Computed example of a mutant assay.
Amino acid sequence: MKITDGFDARRLRPRGPGNWRLRLAAVMAALFAAFGILLSMAGTATLLGRPPALGPLNDSTGAAVVLLVLGLVLLWGGIAAWRMCRRRLRRPSDLSLSPHLMKKRD
């Protein structure tokens, strides 16, 4: 059977629901990353001897180290979640066919 040029594989699958959940998750992940940067900066400022940025929350060196580590973990987790959401948003919704099964046209 010959496949015509007007064939569109996207018509075979029904349209899925909107991706507003992934967009919201990407925004939340970006906010977590930004909050992680701010916490890391506050912990670093205290360790470098500047006045504490968060009042009595990070007066001691131990609290500053905890803020720095927590900020770096939030930054890493936020970036990882943001990248995962962006990757899923950009994933094509076409049929998943292996490239070697497609007919080669010159």
Rank of each mutant, 00 (worst) to 15 (best):
W76P: 00
L67T: 01
L54W: 11
K104R: 10
P14L: 09
I3V: 14
M41V: 15
D5Y: 04
N58D: 10
R86L: 11
A80W: 01
R83E: 15
L31K: 06
R87M: 07
P17T: 03
N19W: 01
G77E: 09
I37G: 08
H100M: 01
L70C: 04
N58Y: 02
G77T: 04
A9W: 07
G16V: 08
A29C: 09
L54I: 05
A45G: 12
G18C: 11
L12S: 07
K2F: 11
V65L: 14
W76H: 03
M1Q: 08
T44V: 06
L12I: 06
A45M: 07
R23M: 13
R86V: 05
A30E: 14
R88S: 06
A34F: 15
A81L: 12
F32N: 08
R11M: 04
R88L: 13
I3S: 03
F32L: 14
M1S: 12
S60N: 10
S93P: 06
L24E: 13
L89P: 01
G55E: 10
G77W: 04
L24K: 12
L57E: 12
R86W: 02
L89N: 00
A64N: 02
G16L: 15
R105E: 14
K104H: 14
A64M: 12
L57K: 07
K104N: 08
L89W: 02
L101Q: 06
S40R: 12
S98Q: 05
T61F: 08
L101S: 02
D59K: 03
T46S: 09
L68G: 09
L47I: 15
D59S: 10
L89D: 01
L67G: 04
L89M: 15
S40F: 14
V65I: 12
A45D: 10
M84Q: 09
R105V: 15
P92A: 13
R105G: 13
F7T: 07
W20N: 14
L89Q: 05
D8I: 02
L48R: 12
G16Q: 13
G77I: 01
S98A: 15
K103T: 13
L101M: 09
A25E: 14
A26Q: 15
R83P: 03
R10A: 00
